[in-house]
């Protein structure tokens, strides 16, 4: 399996010995050795159905596949990188927060709920599942927060990065939250997580 290693907090190095790694297209900043790059098919190996689903949902994912022997350095826009190991689990992550992943991991698009009670606009997210490492981007170092039945968590959607576990996600649109967000910026709803799992947030609003 490809070996992921952080160099500082904003650059990830991946050692390859004949394997491949998928990454955000254009996120390679340097490499050593013999590495070849190709576009990772439709939406990162999800097939034509996956590509259609991504087009319909707007959860775009532009990945490339790097294969060979050597070291590849990835970074994106000076944002911090968190390495999330998955052991047969599923990570829900915004497609814009995905930097790189083991090529053995599967990506998909899933429906996460309706925005607000009445608006009826569907929200979708990217899921990554299987065994391997996912390099997730966050604006500032990510903070992982635990959710348990006795303590649900409320998150600013602009600060939400990813989540995993047995979680139900709901959209809270209360007047109080709306009064607390800046004018003309931020979302008019907050995200509430119930159940058991982990939510990753970033210390910055998108």
């Amino acid at each position: 399996m490809a070996r992921f290693r952080k160099n500082g907090s904003r650059i990830v190095e991946v050692d390859l010995a004949g394997e491949s790694v998928k990454s955000l297209a254009g996120a390679m900043i340097a490499y050593e050795g013999e590495i070849s790059f190709k576009k990772a098919g439709f939406g990162g190996g999800e097939g034509i159905r996956g590509a259609i689903k991504r087009k319909a949902t707007g959860e775009s994912l532009d990945l490339m596949e790097c294969t060979g022997t050597g070291t590849v350095y990835f970074a994106h826009d000076a944002t911090e990188i968190e390495l999330v190991p998955l052991a047969g689990e599923t990570l829900q992550v915004e497609s814009s927060s995905l930097l790189a992943l083991d090529s053995g991991l599967k990506t998909n698009v899933t429906f996460t709920g309706l925005r607000g009670a009445s608006a009826g606009q569907g929200l979708f997210t990217t899921t990554v599942s299987g065994n391997g490492v996912v390099a997730v981007l966050s604006d500032g170092p990510a903070i992982s927060l635990e959710v348990a039945p006795q303590y649900p968590l409320v998150v600013d959607p602009d600060a939400y990065v990813a989540s995993k576990g047995q979680l139900t996600q709901s959209f809270v649109t209360d007047v109080s939250w709306r009064s607390a967000i800046g004018k003309g910026s931020g979302e008019a709803f907050s995200l509430r997580f119930d159940g058991s799992g982990v939510v990753l947030i970033q210390p910055a609003e998108r």
Partner: peptide, 8 residues
């Protein structure tokens, strides 16, 4: 305004 990112 706009500076809280999460709460319990």
């Amino acid at each position: 305004k706009g500076k809280m990112i999460a709460y319990y």
